[in-house]
């Protein structure tokens, strides 16, 4: 029995050592990575000098549709496809931790998120900050009761992304072109078919219900902005064909943002006729392609101009 415990002790010591070395190595690579959705793009923003005046934060419906060059102030698109509000709040905390908060944030509010199941797994994208940011740590621990045990290994922060981390690190060592974060969707002939499928699919048959619990991340986001004196503007991108959850979500969301004194633009309520009359502008029901995105960008830019001007008048054209 004594031999067994000695063996376990030796195994634990070895595991601790190997885990430490691997975690340190990957941490070093991570901080030098400027590519990829699992941290590289955040690092690219953190490396920007000077820090842009404003940021667009949101999911794919802002990443592929909002061109920061359309705006009145130097702006950067730090949107992550597929990520919900919990991730956006965690991201804002990362920027706070790294002292890289901009003067204004343009937050894309996705209506669908407030009628769907809450996805805590999104926070896993910020795993590098586990045990560095209390909010991220707490949210990850909420995913399941076993998460703490998994993160006993520091290297676990790279679970499932070891190869992509290596690849992104190696690619980041080349001279990367400086971008504004906007990633337009190229139009393809098949996109129209996607749009058609979405239109004819009879989606969202069940009457949706507003999930008030999901608001906690948005409220936290608002708090961080207020605490750091960051001007917050919210907007919602258009759909080719409206979802039935639109009216269910917009009313409570609009009143909450109004109560908090946050300007909100729901582009579905103020549609651009051009976008609705041409299917070719759409990648699918929820995303505009490279041809349609500039119209939306300009619409949001026009709407946000007075608010952004009030913050930094010297930089307005």
């Amino acid at each position: 029995m004594q031999r067994f415990f000695l063996f376990l002790l030796a195994l634990a010591a070895l595991l601790f050592g190997v885990d430490f070395i691997l975690a340190r190595t990957f941490d070093a690579m991570y901080t030098r990575t400027l590519l990829g959705q699992s941290g590289g793009e955040i690092n690219q923003y953190l490396a920007l000098k000077p820090t842009p005046e404003a940021l667009v934060i949101g999911n794919s419906r802002a990443r592929y549709q909002i061109d920061p060059d359309s705006f009145a102030v130097p702006m950067y698109n730090l949107c992550h496809a597929g990520m919900g509000q919990s991730f956006q709040t965690g991201l804002l905390q990362v920027l706070e931790l790294e002292h890289k908060l901009p003067k204004a944030v343009l937050l894309h509010v996705d209506l669908g998120e407030y009628v769907a199941e809450e996805s805590l797994a999104d926070m896993g994208t910020l795993r590098y900050y586990y045990n560095k940011l209390p909010f991220v740590t707490e949210e990850i621990n909420n995913i399941s009761r076993y998460e703490r045990g998994k993160y006993f290994f520091r290297f676990y922060r790279y679970n499932g992304r070891v190869i992509s981390q290596l690849k992104n690190y190696l690619q980041s060592r080349r001279n990367l072109p400086v971008t504004n974060g906007y990633q337009p969707l190229e139009p393809f002939a098949t996109d129209t078919v996607n749009a058609l499928l979405a239109v004819d699919g009879g989606r969202d048959a069940k009457p949706p219900r507003f999930q008030y619990a999901h608001l906690r991340h948005l409220l936290k986001f608002i708090d961080i902005c207020k605490k750091n004196n960051v001007k917050l503007l919210c907007f919602t991108s258009p759909y080719y064909q409206a979802h039935n959850y639109g009216p269910v979500v917009v009313a409570p969301l609009d009143s909450l943002l109004r109560a908090q004194g946050i300007p909100y633009l729901n582009t579905n309520a103020q549609p651009l006729p051009l976008l609705w009359s041409h299917r070719l502008f759409w990648h699918d029901n929820d995303h505009l392609n490279r041809l349609g995105a500039p119209y939306l960008s300009q619409q949001v830019a026009r709407w946000s101009k007075p608010y952004l001007t009030a913050i930094e008048p010297s930089r307005i054209d």
Binding site: L11, D19, L22, V162
Partner: peptide, 14 residues
């Protein structure tokens, strides 16, 4: 054991 455990930590599907 160390190799297998670390492979699971790095690549295992949680």
């Amino acid at each position: 054991s160390v190799v297998l455990i670390m492979l699971m930590v790095g690549f295992g599907v949680s």
